[in-house]
Design a protein around this nucleic acid. Structure first.
Lengths: 224, 224
DNA sequence: GTCTATAGTCGGATAGAC
DNA sequence: GTCTATCCGACTATAGAC
């Protein structure tokens, strides 16, 4: 049986670990890997420099642990929206209205993750950097989230437009849709300058993207 | 009058300078500022390490000179498309067909710059990094290209939809459009995995984005 | 203009006391 | 588990010969 001292030591250790992960998200979300020093990570976490090799082995391993943490902290509501939409796309007699509704929910959830939730800026920063220069963390992010998002959206589009799931045009449409959301994150500075503002309302962005795309699809289906 | 030797020295110097700029685009387009060393720049340019301080003063100054080079090397055809479209948006009696045609040309030109031309990947890499973490180079890029692109697209949309230029919704739409193109650059890895391919055809991307957006606008106008 | 050699700084990781 | 002290390597920029 472990003594009280040992248990306290374990708790202290796991808290240091958590604070290092938090500092990792904060710093790697804002700056490139090589622009973040182990000293900054340790300082921000209120930990000692040697705590990084101790808890993670290397700086690189801490960086990857942050990716796993990002995947693990995706909102349950987003997971639920993807699950519902996936089922909906698999239901043969689902009508256009229900498919569009599901797509709308997925876009809103994804937008919320990218521009809405508390750490959205940091997490999106980390993910975008991984996209520009994939490392081992990219697989974690892809398998943990992106693959399913892409797959569900593609199948919804295929059903709505009466195309096979494998039609490349469906993947292209889906890529455009994701790009629209990411554009508000990547091109944020440009948009702020254009609008002469210094903030953007995340909900407004999410609803704008969802509404314009759903409306466009509605017109496209009606027209066909 | 400068002697033959002096002229040859000047030529050699300006060629070294040009090769350093080229190496800068190559390396800063792929990696973050701090992930590129002056040694790598000098090696790739076939120049000496000390040539960087000599020609540019500092590594940072070389980095900024690359931004100016990017703006300067935007295709004349793209400049022409923007100019034509801007004039078109300012012509009070321009019909929807002409406005849509102009928009189409601008999207094609922009897509070509981002995914088509020879150094598109490198230039887009540089610009995307600047968007994620703006430095002094961001102003160069914004004033040299982005502002006009955004402005022209916004005005075209405003005319097409009968809204005032200042309507934030027009800027939002424009942002979505730009995001769609950038999405194929940023999310390239994800799309390739989804399609189980290892290349994408730039022309296909450009025409896909242009066609889907123009068609959607046509339906929207017809419907209103 | 170009080169070699070097100064000066800072980074990640380790060793070993507590 | 945490700390201090330290090693070793890599980087930018400069000095000064050619």
């Amino acid at each position: 049986m472990p003594g009280v001292d040992a248990i306290q030591a374990v708790n202290r250790g796991s808290q240091t670990r958590r604070r290092l992960l938090r500092a990792g998200l904060e710093l790697f979300g804002q700056r490139d890997y090589d622009n973040v020093t182990t000293r900054q990570l340790a300082d921000l976490a209120g930990a000692n420099l040697a705590a990084i090799p101790y808890h993670f082995g290397t700086k690189q391993a801490l960086y990857q642990a942050v990716a796993e943490d990002i995947v693990a902290s995706i909102q349950p509501s987003t997971r639920a929206a993807l699950l519902t939409a996936g089922r909906c796309a698999d239901t043969p007699d689902a009508g256009a209205h229900r498919l569009l509704q599901a797509l709308r929910e997925v876009i809103l959830a994804f937008s919320h993750e990218v521009v809405g939730v508390a750490d959205a800026r940091l997490r999106a920063g980390y993910i975008l950097r991984e996209q520009l220069r994939p490392s081992a963390s990219f697989d974690v992010l892809y398998e943990g989230f992106m693959r399913e998002l892409h797959s569900v959206m593609t199948r919804l589009h295929a059903r709505l437009l009466g195309c096979p799931d494998e039609d490349p045009a469906m993947a292209f449409r889906c890529q455009c849709l994701i790009g629209q959301v990411l554009g508000f994150r990547v091109g944020r500075e440009v948009l702020l300058r254009r609008l002469n503002r210094d903030t953007l309302d995340p909900r407004q962005i999410a609803e704008f993207v969802a509404d314009t795309n759903v409306a466009a699809l509605q017109r496209e289906i009606g027209h066909a």
